[in-house]
Design a protein around this nucleic acid. Structure first.
Length: 288
DNA sequence: ACAGGCTCCTGCAGGC
DNA sequence: TGCCTGCAGGAGCCTG
């Protein structure tokens, strides 16, 4: 499932391939899901716009779009700047099984392809999502504010702010890590992996963790996420990057989906429990 | 404020 | 071999 490192990898790949390109045609499949904005409104909003940038916020991929043809007031044309100003955003959340691919137009169409955007370069940007847990949203920045995740960025948050997130919270630390309004981008894999590297049991009450433990967790989380980004993410289920290439971080997982296998540090069999409704993996010896 | 349950959806694994 | 069942899970919602 795509979490922060996977979404970051995809956003980088898509940016590399479509930045500066123009959307000339949009096709949306018939399903009502997985659209947050009605498909027709998205298609109408997207066509004619230039992709100025693509970046990640939490688990969301944000495409910054320039003005569409004929949308510019004559005055701003003379200033020669409006093309550089984002006028709209296309926000993609991949859910569990979503994929955003840059392909040639004649590449075989994957099952469950919900969106095809034809680009002026001849390429296509495709959104594929078998389980349809993904969400697509179009924002006209003249009418609504730009997208921002509710939670903090785990890669840049400092010690004070990180500790404050969990202060006096009476829920399992694992559940708190998954809460996107606290931290944006952490999902099941990296919650389990960072708790392992910090030596903290997933069921520990968030508000009862010591300052030292929280700092270990912050650093472990940051290290795990950065390492996973370097390796192109974790390919569990059917995750691939914008070119359809798998990541390699799944080979470095210490606990996630390793229940029954020996801990890489102490050989104790990894345990699997359920916390906040999610499969949770930990080493009973290394995590106290 | 938080837990727990349910919903969405499909692919896959296990049982028989 | 093939069918059936159950499970996985991000996020949003509802109820307790």
């Amino acid at each position: 499932m795509p979490e922060l490192p996977e979404v970051e990898t995809i956003a980088r790949g898509v940016r590399e391939r479509v930045r500066g390109d123009r959307i000339v045609q949009a096709w949306f499949g018939g399903h009502r899901e997985p659209f947050k904005t009605p498909p027709l409104r998205q298609a109408k909003g997207l066509v004619g716009r230039i992709v100025l940038d693509v970046h990640r916020t939490g688990k969301h991929i944000v495409c910054e779009l320039g003005a569409a043809d004929g949308e510019l007031p004559a005055k701003s044309l003379r200033l020669n700047t409006p093309e550089k100003m984002p006028h709209a955003q296309w926000i993609v959340h991949l859910g569990m099984t979503g994929r955003l691919l840059v392909t040639s137009p004649d590449a075989p169409l994957a099952a469950h392809t919900h969106v095809r955007l034809s680009l002026a370069s001849g390429r296509e940007l495709r959104f594929v999502d078998p389980r349809r847990f993904g969400r697509l949203e179009f924002r006209d920045l003249r009418r609504s504010p730009g997208f921002s995740a509710t939670g903090a960025e785990p890669l840049t948050i400092g010690p004070e702010a990180f500790a404050a997130l969990f202060h006096s919270r009476r829920l399992a630390i694992k559940a708190a890590l998954l809460n996107q309004t606290l931290l944006a981008g952490v999902g099941n894999i990296y919650a389990d992996e960072s708790l392992f590297h910090a030596g903290i049991r997933p069921r520990r009450m968030a508000g009862r963790l010591t300052r030292a433990e929280l700092e270990r967790l912050r650093l472990a989380l940051r290290q795990v996420l950065k390492h996973a980004i370097r390796l192109g993410g974790s390919s569990v289920s059917d995750y691939v990057d914008a070119d359809g290439v798998r990541g390699f971080f799944q080979l470095e997982h210490c606990v996630y989906q390793r229940s029954g296998l020996p801990c890489r540090l102490c050989q104790t069999p990894i345990r699997r429990i359920v916390v906040a409704g999610r499969g949770t993996h930990y080493c009973a010896n290394c995590q106290q």
